[in-house]
Design a protein around this nucleic acid. Structure first.
Lengths: 341, 341
DNA sequence: CTGAAAGCGCTTACAG
DNA sequence: CTGAAAGCGCTTACAG
């Protein structure tokens, strides 16, 4: 099939190509009757403007990029990214923007992708995920002047706007809840230490534990790579210690589920012998027994907010960081007062 | 920053733009020394050809499209799609192709997306997932002559090539294994009935049960929408029946995990009172207790194969359907001989 | 309000 | 082996 162009429409409408372009883009310069006639013809022949031609003549590419730099095995099972993507998508398709996705192996490859996208004019802007401490991607994007929004923040984003939530507050709420239940030995299986939000959570954890008078040796954070195996390993280590924790907070849902299994395997009952908290919440947390107490956020809404901010930045609006609602604790069956042995 | 163009390179190299283009694309028409000089300059100034200009001058857009039409809540938690995407990605980025992703609400929206992509020349081809019975998307893609590869088949793909595996054989292996363990009452929680592969599996299930002499009333398939809730509901119904099954095969991992929880909740032990099999396998299956016996396939490899086939089709190669390795059963702790009450 | 024209940055016949 | 030129399908000043 031959693809229709504005020349086809112009011919059928008996006007110039310029007039068609104005009519299609809602610009002034055509009479209302002409505009309606042109739109009707475009609709009839199923016209969509060539994104290449459009992009080439200085307009936008109408696509934004998302490069994901986590090992594939993590990506596949963590519901977080798919939730984020579906939220981003919903916002983008409403404005008929495309999402260009690329999975990369490491930050250097990711930087190369940004440079390439920029040179190719393939995307109008990018969403930056998994912000790191001293993130080398930030200055590159600033220098390229490629519109970008960080999914995270508010610190460490340089001049880029971030969409963030108060993770320290969410963590404090969690620890306070556990302490109110009577826990004094609370451990944490954290995410990748080089990620900014891991650091925020770890610092907040230390601070709130100190504030509540918990013993520093009883409130450790074990790093992990987010995989179930690593979560299991960390849990085994924690539960084998002489003074084992009575509650563990996991930095993702998959590790929390792995930790639950390990505890049960070691003959501990949840929540009797061990309380378990997952961050973030996901349908998986409701599937296991007992269902997991979790920190819930509306992740698609979070992605939607990021997309909206990015589209504003692309449109040339000066955007500032946006704070989204703080995650809240959803208590389920995996947390209870510790059983005193 | 100003983006470099071939004109910049031509000026610095003292040649015409045409020569630069030939050199960059490995075409004959430039001497080896000139080519090397041009490539060195391109590299030095960090040149990437404008994808828009390239696409406009008749070359490829160097992007393929993937429209996903499952409700967002399912997408988020099933590891299948992320596994598929990471496999597709690996193949695409090796040839510096981009992946354009779009989440759609229903098949009509998906068809509209294909028409738009085609009109926009935004993608060179598409990957069609979740093939349906009498799939209306197939004739549309054929008519548009948009290169397309079906992730599925081999039936129902029309003239489009499919990448498929022998699901009937995999299902037969599973049922034979369960029967060999001594099971006679085997139920199945199937996927969406309108999907082609659900139908293939359901037909194969009926056939192998008949062949092995199992009672038809003892070997039912209950449809589902792939969510954990639906899997739980179906399991509850199956296990409440007078003659309850001693083994259940689930059409995805999430439902299998939900089913496991329901069984345990109802006081049944797995695998003593009930054997559980998941399809496909995923890291989640190894996280729960007992770990789930599952039908394993290399899903990233499957996606990679589909991407390769599509790129061939885009390049104008006449491609035929490709059969990938049949999934194999990975026995774990969730299956055992039935305990006779 | 409308038309003719230049230009975006490539690719690719077509001459030399 | 190399250069000059047309053309892809739009957008957008610039004249009428």
């Amino acid at each position: 099939m031959k693809r229709p162009t504005i020349a086809d429409i112009a011919r059928r409408a008996g006007v110039s190509k310029g007039a068609v372009s104005y009519a299609l883009n809602g610009q002034p310069g055509v009479s209302d009757t002409t505009r309606r006639r042109i739109l009707a013809i475009a609709d009839e022949i199923g016209f969509s403007p060539s994104s290449a031609a459009r992009a080439l003549s200085g307009a936008r590419a109408r696509a934004v990029g998302l490069a994901l730099c986590r090992p594939a095995r993590t990506l596949g099972i963590e519901p977080f990214f798919m939730g984020l993507i579906s939220g981003v998508e919903a916002e983008l398709s409403a404005r008929s923007y495309a999402l260009t996705l690329q999975v990369v192996a490491d930050p250097d490859a990711e930087i190369a992708v940004y440079r390439r996208w920029w040179g190719e004019r393939r995307v109008d802007g990018v969403l930056l995920c998994d912000l790191r401490t001293d993130d080398r991607r930030v200055p590159v994007l600033e220098q390229l002047q490629l519109p970008a929004v960080v999914v995270g923040g508010p610190d460490g984003t340089g001049a880029l706007p971030g969409v963030w939530s108060d993770e320290a507050a969410a963590l404090a709420e969690t620890v306070e809840y556990l302490v109110a239940l009577g826990h004094r030995r609370v451990a944490r299986v954290g995410g990748l230490p080089e990620l900014q939000h891991t650091r925020v959570r770890t610092d907040a954890f230390r601070a709130v534990c100190a504030r509540l008078g918990l013993d520093r040796g009883d409130t450790v954070t074990v790093p992990s790579d987010y995989t179930g195996e690593d979560g299991a390993r960390a849990t085994r280590r924690l539960l084998s210690a002489a003074r084992r924790p009575t509650a563990v907070i996991y930095d993702n849902d998959v590790m929390a589920i792995a930790g639950l299994s390990v505890a049960q395997e070691m003959g501990l009952t949840v929540p009797g012998d061990l309380s378990v908290v997952a961050w973030d919440d996901s349908p998986l947390c409701r599937l296991v027994r007992p269902p997991l107490t979790a920190l819930s956020r509306d992740i698609p809404a979070y992605g939607g907010q990021a997309a909206r901010l990015l589209l504003d930045a692309v449109a040339g609006v000066r955007v500032a960081a946006v704070r989204t609602p703080t995650g809240h604790l959803t208590p389920r069956g995996s947390t209870a007062p510790p059983r005193t042995p």
